[in-house]
Amino acid sequence: MRTERPKTFNKTLNQSLFIIGVMICWELLARTRWFPPLLFPQLTSVFSSLFSEIAKGEILGRLYFSLYLIAVGLGLAIITAACAAALALSSNLISDWVQTVMAILHPLPGISVLPIIILWLGTGPQSIMAVIWFSSVWPLITNLHTGLRSVPATQIEVGKNYGLKGVGLVWKVSIPGAFPHILTGLRIAWARAWQASVAAEMVFGASGGEGGLGWFIYKKRFFMEIPSVFGGLIVIIIVGLIVERLCFEWIEVRTVRRWGMTSE
């Protein structure tokens, strides 16, 4: 326990130094003007446009909307995955079906189904949510499924021995036992949901009133506000880092790492 804090601290410091280094290289490269500044802006102009977009309030509103879309899409995906895993757990036949469906659909990039989703659901937030759902549901099911199957039979029997059955057994033994996999699934699902939300809005289907960060970047591209495009990317990166560091790592340290359930 004692060695952990300096380790994380060192990691953070190391990462920060690396990022600062990359940023300095960027700024120097941009100042050489080897590339058209319209396409490769200086970081200083990127940050000043980012701050002005934040001040105008648009970028945060877009971010909020993106997060809302992801919350709904990912939430539905989690519910779907839970149901699918529950069904798969209840019968081997359904388990085979779920595995077949996963084998077929898991490799499909979420964005590739957008044209069909637009045909079925039309344009608008519901389509983006559907793409987010589609992108995140497979890693969730796969990991939940593997996780539940990886719980040692002994632990299930111990649970039964002390009088647990049905939902209680799943809740008190299977879910915590599968938690390392569940956490991995959530991480992948979150990443894919982010990617899908931004990508879907850039391809099409987003609209002025109901667009998130993807739409913001898309629009800025067409108005040639390239520093703002980079600003949008920076917001995406920062949110990704915050969620990874403050949410997933926080959970991981308090659960699977404390329980010694990681392979690290």
């Binding site: 637009i118 045909l119 039309g122 344009t123 608008g124 099409f204 289907g205 002025g208 009133g209």
Partner: peptide, 23 residues
């Protein structure tokens, strides 16, 4: 009308309008 606009390439938008879907 900025909040009403949807960005779509012409062929997709044409198909969507003729099928009366979405737009």
């Amino acid at each position: 009308l900025d909040n009403n606009i949807v960005a779509m390439p012409h062929p997709d938008a044409c198909a969507a309008l003729i099928s009366k879907k979405g737009i």
